[in-house]
């Protein structure tokens, strides 16, 4: 099981959240339901991969590349 950044994940490929390694946005991401072990999926990337449309158990979110790459995911 490879661990990669969420920003590197292909669209429509479910993965599991491993950990968040950016303390600046970690609290907010946790509050939004980005919890270790939860399923996560990239639905869409904006042109040039700047903004990410993310789906988790707790809903859909728009994240920038910076936030997305702070989330490490385990490929299933």
């Amino acid at each position: 099981m490879a661990i990669i950044d969420l920003s590197q994940l292909k669209t429509y490929t479910p993965a599991l959240i491993h950990q968040i390694h950016n303390s600046f946005c970690e609290v907010r991401l946790l509050e939004l339901g980005f919890l270790p072990g939860k399923k996560i999926e990239v639905i869409r990337k904006s042109p040039f991969g700047h903004t990410f449309y993310i789906k988790t158990n707790s809903g859909c979110f728009a994240l920038r590349k910076n936030e997305a790459s702070s989330i490490q995911v385990k490929c299933i």
Binding site: C25, L29, G59, C60, F61, A62, L63
Partner: peptide, 11 residues
Amino acid sequence: SRSFLMLEMPE
């Protein structure tokens, strides 16, 4: 530098 976007997409 601290700019972020973590926006919930409501149903």
